[in-house]
């Protein structure tokens, strides 16, 4: 499955408002449209993953990810923070682009790891940070995913 098929417009936010790492995670979780209790459980799981080592992979990009019981299918969201924020990234640089990936504990299609790998590859394309900065509508983000997956 291509990345484009896994994102929806509702799960893309180009102006994240939060300023701290925790609040960014919460804002990203909200994009998944779960209920309040699920949001709380998911936040704790993501936070515990972050405590093992930041998912900020450098060059302004972070990929918070985990498996959690609160979802029944692979869920993805993208958030952009104008100006960036400290996310304890590998290169210590502020993070501007956040890709959230949450998978259920058991997946028949087993997409979680391949998708995590694809996002990491997508994010490491030197052209991507600049292209993401220039996006003005969520649909353009989806178009970019489609464009890159067809190359």
């Amino acid at each position: 499955m291509e990345l484009r098929e896994l994102f929806t417009v509702d799960a893309v936010k180009l102006e994240l408002e939060a300023d701290s790492k925790d609040d960014i995670l919460k804002e990203l979780i909200e994009l998944l449209g779960l209920d309040e209790k699920s949001d709380t459980i998911l936040f704790k799981t993501l936070k515990r993953r972050e405590n093992l080592g930041s998912t900020g992979i450098g060059k302004g990009i972070a990929i918070p990810h985990c498996r959690s019981l609160v979802v029944n299918k692979l869920c993805l969201a993208y958030g952009r923070k104008p100006g960036g924020t400290d996310f304890s990234s590998i290169d210590d640089a502020p993070v501007h682009h956040f890709f959230l990936i949450v998978a259920p504990p058991l997946e028949v299609s087993n997409q979680y790891l391949p998708i995590l790998g694809k996002i990491a590859q997508f994010a490491k394309d030197p052209e991507i940070p600049g292209r993401l900065e220039s996006i003005s509508e969520p649909e353009e983000f989806l178009d970019l995913l489609k464009e890159k997956s067809t190359r």
Partner: peptide
């Protein structure tokens, strides 16, 4: 997705676990 926000507190703990 989960449809209710009311969950037994011990169940929440078990899910985190």
């Amino acid at each position: 997705m989960m449809t209710a926000s009311r969950l037994h507190p011990q169940l929440v703990l078990l899910m985190e676990l």
